[in-house]
Design a protein around this nucleic acid. Sequence first.
DNA 1: TTGTAGGCGTTATCAA
DNA 2: TTGATAACGCCTACAA
Lengths: 319, 319
Amino acid sequence: MANIRDVAKAAGVSVTTVSRVLNNQPYVKEEKEAAVKKAIKETGYIPNINAVNLKKGKTNLIGVVLPFLDQPYFSNLVQGISQAASVHQYKLVLYQTGYHEHQEKEALEMLKLKQIDSLIICSRKISLDIVESYQQYGNIVLFEDGEQTSLSYTFIDHYACFIKALEYLYEHGHREIGFSINRLEGTNSRQREQAYRDFLKLKGLPYNEKYIFKKCLNIEDGERILKEMGTFQKRPTAILATGDQVAAGIITSSSKYQLKIPEDLAVIGFDDQPIARAMSITTVDIPLYSIGQLLFEQAVSEKVSHKEVSAELIERSTV
Amino acid sequence: MANIRDVAKAAGVSVTTVSRVLNNQPYVKEEKEAAVKKAIKETGYIPNINAVNLKKGKTNLIGVVLPFLDQPYFSNLVQGISQAASVHQYKLVLYQTGYHEHQEKEALEMLKLKQIDSLIICSRKISLDIVESYQQYGNIVLFEDGEQTSLSYTFIDHYACFIKALEYLYEHGHREIGFSINRLEGTNSRQREQAYRDFLKLKGLPYNEKYIFKKCLNIEDGERILKEMGTFQKRPTAILATGDQVAAGIITSSSKYQLKIPEDLAVIGFDDQPIARAMSITTVDIPLYSIGQLLFEQAVSEKVSHKEVSAELIERSTV
DNA sequence: TTGTAGGCGTTATCAA
DNA sequence: TTGATAACGCCTACAA
């Protein structure tokens, strides 16, 4: 493996000049620059990242905090981040937390110990105060509305999305609308719940605690919803499922409960995952791949920024 | 950030001694070792990985080649690899290839250029000859039967699995058995097809080209299978779907084609993913998470090794 | 058993 | 516009 000195020798210049060319700095005569570039090609020189990093005091590593990787929601996000990272020569360190605070904290500690340059938090349980206290050690980017913080973030207006979907169901004649959620504590979940409450108030509809199905994440949970609903005297005519997986679960097990989709029960999913396309589920499209790219850009950017990404309702056949 | 010299000073020894303690090498008096350990704690010293790597000429990075990340099959594998990697202080570099040979080659080149220490190839298109030619630059581990190579690998005996599943269907009275596959070229796919042919011959059953459904990967593809089958004069009574996703697709769209599962059509999936549990799909369980851990161990091991992992048929309600 | 000193491959300061 | 040289933090002959 050729090093910078070999290149310098081959080009008949000093290592400083080579370094200048490498980092496109000014003060290099054109002919010397050409000579260096030629030498780089001839020697097959590749900079030693460890040496560069050691010198510059950075790692070129970006941490990614997420609860699980085997959910399309997160793996799509990671695909986007990973793609952007590879373009910029960054590597990823995945922290699968399972929503355990100590695991999330561990990732933050890595930032403090300079084991990683920045941290992207895709979903979290730990409090924002704690997260913010680590900001001094490196860039931290959130995938949520971090309004009350001084951190960079990219977010989707879940409040608006939810209102949009509710309005759509309302237009289709639905007055008894339920929804599922995973963890009620999350920022996104709170926005959705608030939208739900506000919408009901606006339309003069009653609020029914039982219509909120908690801890819903997977296909199994979709079935659980129907099971629970079977015990109700009066049941919702439409469900806003937070996630296409849950929507799919509702739909696949609907026949078991003698429910026709959408006649007896309308369903809207979230994320527009392959399963939604396959099963023709009406859903709210969230462009996770592009969001991943945005999150990466923010993670390596010098300045704090906030980006909002919009989501579209995709009409298919479950409403 | 304290460095090794600060620790040495605090402990009243030389940096060499500290380094020895750090790397648990012999020739350090107990009391000095204790002093060093105390100093490490007090100063909050953390080794600078870049310096260590620079000195040792390695990166502590493991490349992972896979076509997609947003399929549970691969994301589960990555979860296992990632978990093992974090324990051993290794970081991952994901190469999402989409089965493009040039992307796979890029990952191999990274190995050659010492940008990564080892490479785990979860699935590939590029020829084994080419892969093998990069072995000199670092450990390469395959997730397939690499019998004809000198590489490390972990594999599942897909031939045996397939025979087992076919036998199970046969016992349940099925004589017209079809199967789906993704890419026929893959090592695993070839084993499966061979098992299929051998099984038919063994049982004296006719081979029907049309019963092999190619390019099947997702839920959508499951529906496509039923659509195709609708055009057959005689159709299979059972399908071995390579992947629970495909099985799920078959099942969810079966009612559309007036097919009852399992009475009219039996289905066996692969991988035992959440969707299989949710929909009670009979499947062949492949322990991807543990396999990921094995692959990592092989990636950092000094010596070439081969491991076989067995898969179990899980009886549920689609046969 | 311990310590000194040189070098891994870069970048950056400073003098020329 | 160039180049010599001192770091960055660590490991490891080699000497003691």
